[in-house]
């Protein structure tokens, strides 16, 4: 299996001088071509920072990150990113948003007539794939949150990126919309075959989507455990109720709690349970 993204001993220190914060410490991870890897962990574990480093939006202070064997030099169209929100351009229609990269120099260079037509066809195909054909001429703020994220995903896919980075893309959506988006993104992954790195705080989402779940721990941000998801490649909503799924979910949740370092919260919970037990007896 070919390695697409290689993260080797990556460290990231925020701020210089008196109180530097170690956001990432000695993070090493290989992500295979066409893999779907999800990242979970307590807040402050650096999962978003790691994703942003791969995307070139943040720089690491030690170690190296290689994409196809070459170190990354800032953001680029080969690594598209989908954000939680506010990333669409409200002054452009849905179609214009999706075709935004065509306005950029690198999107126009070395283009033949046929390429332009192909791109137009691709935009239409992506709209259809995302179920947005009827909304092509709408403005983003005429759409629901779920539809807006579908536009953002279509826009990210437009340039056929080899790597798709998603930073809590469904974090602001309601539970029903999120389920639909899960199956949609799995479909996109099968169809377009990008290497997909997906950050979330929702463990169920991480297991349902990921072939591997990377659990990170805070202070300093690091990889704690990597779980292989024991589910068939083709996922179905019903799998969320299987014993394997639930067991893995319980295990990951427990581990996040252990690593969160929120001792005060944990003590308070224990106290409550103790009181409940006393009241019952």
């Amino acid at each position: 299996m070919r390695i697409k993204i290689s993260i080797q001993h990556v460290g990231k220190v925020f701020g210089e001088g008196r109180q530097p914060v170690e956001a990432l410490k000695d993070v090493s991870l290989d992500i295979a071509d066409n893999a779907f890897v999800t990242f979970v962990g307590a807040s402050g574990c650096g999962k978003s920072t790691l994703l942003r480093i791969i995307g070139g939006l943040e720089y690491h202070t030690s170690g190296e990150v290689l994409v196809d064997g070459a170190p990354i030099m800032g953001p680029g169209a080969d690594r598209a990113m989908v954000f939680q929100h506010y990333s669409l351009y409200p002054w452009l229609s849905v179609m214009e948003n999706i075709k935004f990269s065509r306005r950029l120099r690198h999107g126009r260079e070395n283009l033949r007539e046929a390429d332009v037509e192909a791109a137009s066809g691709r935009a239409d195909a992506l709209l259809a794939l995302m179920g947005l054909s009827a909304a092509a001429n709408a403005w983003p703020n005429q759409l629901s949150g779920g539809m807006q994220q579908r536009v953002a995903i279509a826009r990210a896919l437009m340039g056929r990126p080899q790597v798709l980075l998603m930073d809590e893309p469904f974090g602001a959506l309601d539970a029903q919309t999120r389920e639909v988006m899960h199956d949609l993104i799995l479909h996109v992954h099968r169809l377009e075959k990008p290497t997909l790195a997906f950050v979330t705080h929702d463990v169920e989402e991480a297991i349902y989507l990921g072939q591997r779940v990377v659990l990170m721990a805070p202070r300093p941000g690091r990889i704690d455990t990597i779980y292989e998801v024991p589910l068939p490649a083709e996922r179905e909503q019903d799998m969320k109720h299987t014993p394997e799924f639930l067991a893995l979910k319980r295990e990951i949740l427990a581990r996040i709690r252990e690593t969160s370092g929120m001792k005060a919260d944990q003590d308070m919970l224990d106290q409550l349970n103790l009181q409940k037990a006393e009241a019952a007896s």
Binding site: G55, G56, L57, G74, P75, G76, A77, R79, A80, M81, F83, S87, L88, F100, S101, L104, H106, G107, A152, R155, A156, M158, G159, L165
Partner: peptide, 8 residues
């Protein structure tokens, strides 16, 4: 950042 990751 969305623009930057699209190659702007």
């Amino acid at each position: 950042e969305a623009a930057q990751t699209m190659g702007a």
